[in-house]
């Protein structure tokens, strides 16, 4: 299929493994899925310490279940990426370990305190879910199918995050103060989740042209702010004066003042050059290397897997 045909036909769940997709499409889709899958893994890495640090048995169970779900999402997304025939899952996981795999800006920062957990578990997950819901309409069917299951599960994550925030916001003064401090620190990063502002009227990128994604970052950021700013206020959080966010006359369109955000940091992160993020990449890489011997033993055993029994049985 040539690229013009792809663009002409691009629509929700239009292409699948049986289609002969052009290289440009396969590479763009791989890049997007690999980034998404990597983000699930590195998000799980960031949240994992809070399984141990949860202050109740139910929270501990929930955090464990959430981190488990995220690894499961990585599993689904790497498969949807593999189906494009560009890279195997092992190659993508190795690239992540080498520092060549890219992932979401928010997962490059350290998270050390319980009061920070809703910043990821509510705001960042909420932002991710906004984007993911639109990806159910992706033109790459394996991507859309992965989104069906991921969106089904994500509602638990966002509500769990909000529940933690509610508990802190209605807790002691100290808890309220720690929550506000965490919010002040994370808010600019959350605003950068959807990347730099697009030119709303003219910008069309390739992924949109071929239907891999259906909404611009600006539209998503705006929808996110419309839903989540009132939530933050509801829990008594003060929105920091900077970065400035302005609404239009109807109060429906949010404009983020780009100059108030640290784009040098953002682009350093995008290149995997931010120190905290590098620590996390390396920490995961070391842990991955330490169990390479187990993966080797599984690969050797593959010879005894499917197919080995094919000659037996049947009729």
């Amino acid at each position: 299929m040539d690229i013009e045909t792809v663009k002409a036909r691009a629509g929700p769940r239009e292409f699948g493994r049986a289609d002969d997709m052009p290289e440009e499409y396969r590479e763009a889709a791989t890049r997007m899925l690999q980034f998404h899958a990597n983000s699930e893994i590195m998000g799980a890495y960031l949240e994992k310490p809070f399984i141990r640090q949860s202050p109740s048995v139910d929270r501990k169970l929930a955090f464990s279940a959430k981190v488990q779900d995220e690894i499961g999402h990585g599993q689904l997304l790497y498969r949807a990426a593999e189906a494009l025939g560009v890279k195997t899952r092992e190659e993508m996981l190795d690239e992540l370990a080498r520092g060549d795999g890219k992932f979401l800006n928010c997962f490059h920062y350290e998270m050390t305190d319980w009061a920070e957990t809703p910043m990821i578990a509510f705001f960042v997950d909420g932002a991710a879910m906004k984007r993911q819901a639109t990806l159910k309409q992706s033109s790459w069917t394996p991507y859309a199918h992965a989104m069906d299951k991921i969106c089904f599960e994500e509602g638990f994550h966002v509500k769990h995050g909000e529940d933690i925030m509610r508990e802190l916001a209605t807790g002691s003064r100290k808890e309220q103060r720690l929550l506000q401090e965490a919010f002040d620190e994370w808010w600019p990063r959350i605003l950068q989740f959807f990347g730099p502002t697009d030119d709303r009227s003219t910008h069309h990128d390739f992924a949109a042209d071929v239907g891999l994604k259906t909404m611009t970052n600006d539209e998503l950021r705006n929808q996110f702010l419309n839903a989540y700013v009132p939530k933050a206020r509801k829990y008594g959080l003060e929105i920091p004066d900077e970065p400035r966010i302005r609404t239009d006359e109807d109060g429906e369109y949010y404009e983020v003042v780009e100059a108030d955000l640290d784009w040098d940091e953002f682009f350093a992160i995008a290149k995997n050059e931010y120190p905290e993020g590098l620590d996390q990449i390396d920490g995961r890489a070391t842990a991955r290397e330490a169990v390479a011997w187990v993966r080797d033993s599984l690969t050797e055993a593959d010879a005894g897997g499917p197919g080995a029994t094919a000659s037996a049985g049947g009729d």
């Binding site: 464990s64 981190v67 488990q68 690894i71 990585g74 899952r89 991955r288």
Partner: peptide, 18 residues
Amino acid sequence: TEWQVVAPTLESDLALSN
């Protein structure tokens, strides 16, 4: 739970988490 995220493969990670 210490093995979550660092088990040998994604599938074995899900199983031990469970």
